[in-house]
Nucleic acid binder design. Sequence first.
DNA 1: CGCAAGATTGAAGTACGTCAATTCCAGTGG
DNA 2: CCACTGGAATTGACGTACTTCAATCTTGCG
Lengths: 239, 239
Amino acid sequence: MLDPLFRKLGQFTELSDGDKQLLHDAVVDVAQHGPREDLIRQGDRPGRVHLLVEGWAARYKLLPGGERQIMAYLIPGDLCDVHVALLQQMDHSIGTLSRCKVAYMQDKALTRIIEEQPRLAKALWWSALVDEAITREWLVTMGRRQADKRIGHLLCEMLLRCKAVGLTADDSFELPLTQEELGDTLGLSHVHLNRTLQKLRSDGFIGSNGRRMVINDLDALMAFADFDPIYLHQERGRA
Amino acid sequence: MLDPLFRKLGQFTELSDGDKQLLHDAVVDVAQHGPREDLIRQGDRPGRVHLLVEGWAARYKLLPGGERQIMAYLIPGDLCDVHVALLQQMDHSIGTLSRCKVAYMQDKALTRIIEEQPRLAKALWWSALVDEAITREWLVTMGRRQADKRIGHLLCEMLLRCKAVGLTADDSFELPLTQEELGDTLGLSHVHLNRTLQKLRSDGFIGSNGRRMVINDLDALMAFADFDPIYLHQERGRA
DNA sequence: CGCAAGATTGAAGTACGTCAATTCCAGTGG
DNA sequence: CCACTGGAATTGACGTACTTCAATCTTGCG
């Protein structure tokens, strides 16, 4: 069940069976959630640590006008809130996008791992740093790239992230998002997003069968969208 | 010299004289830098940890087309790169905006503090989490706010951040940025930024004398720009 | 088969960008 | 004290990438 997490951390360091067992033992509960359910809401005091096992979720904020901005996608293997244990309250919400399976980890167990297992702690820290780097890259995307490159860049990123946790086949992956949600991620209206997606399809960069996104020519799309994978810090090479 | 850092960490926890001494002892060197000098460049392997003592600096990335996106402002008291010690190389650059005084801290000393002084470690961690929260809020700004609110929101944030380290007088602070740099931060052209700044001035929200930014009515500007300071996590109240 | 959510389309409006001048201003040298 | 200079701020005219609104078409699904 923790396989995506193991694969993810495995990008940074070799995990021993003992390491895996420790992580496994920290899990106290597992739950299924439907799509569009909040896992944590802005203002909540963070409690247990959520690990996403199946499905996609998102960090987001709602503005007074009702607009939503998605600030991060969470996919299998991602810890939603290791970090917030220190803060008094959540400054954003986390909600599921698709159906999700979520493992709840006891934060005491995780804290002890961090204190007593330097190598695992480093791997967890590395993963938090990568999340930060991704947020920064999204900022670049929003500030300086136009719609077509925005979408292309995001698709390259999600393909590599999915690949790292074993969720790709060839260069395709499940993308359980509506165009509205994609728009709320990239700061675009769903109308413009739709038209731009069509352009990427007709230019041959991508194809799609329903919810599955197919990247026809990753190198071409990377070049087009000015995508440099360095910020993902997948340091031991890709899976 | 480390006073801004002490004030900043003091927002989260009470620092003892011993804590301060430890931080002080970690400093191995201090240097002056002119404006627009790079402190670290993309691709560098992170070495010593930089602490900004005076002046403003910025995290930024350059795109192939020559555009620049600024992803964070660093002001006195900010550690530039505690976190990156783990990563193989910098995925962005850090450059000064104004003249800066920079203290170099030995990363071994800092590592030992983190391992042996749980309270200080927590404070440093808290500060890293706040930086992350700020980046996320900038993402919201870029995705969903228009130029006037973007600028207003940024000014509210920088006022509060400056206030926390003792760099304000009434509701004004030094803003050592050109309009071009502000534009590169907010994803706007300097022309549009200029016109929008004028609008904020004529609407009475702000005034300025040269490099000094004066917020005439903070509450009004916060309401206008939809600014909620929760994401700054200034938990023990403002200085 | 029928419904509802999502995708797609068209038309019209707007917030922004670009280009190119011009003005302002702080610092410098005389 | 003033003229000179280069960078920054400001202005105008024009183009465009996006938004909004409102309709229609598709698709998955009970």
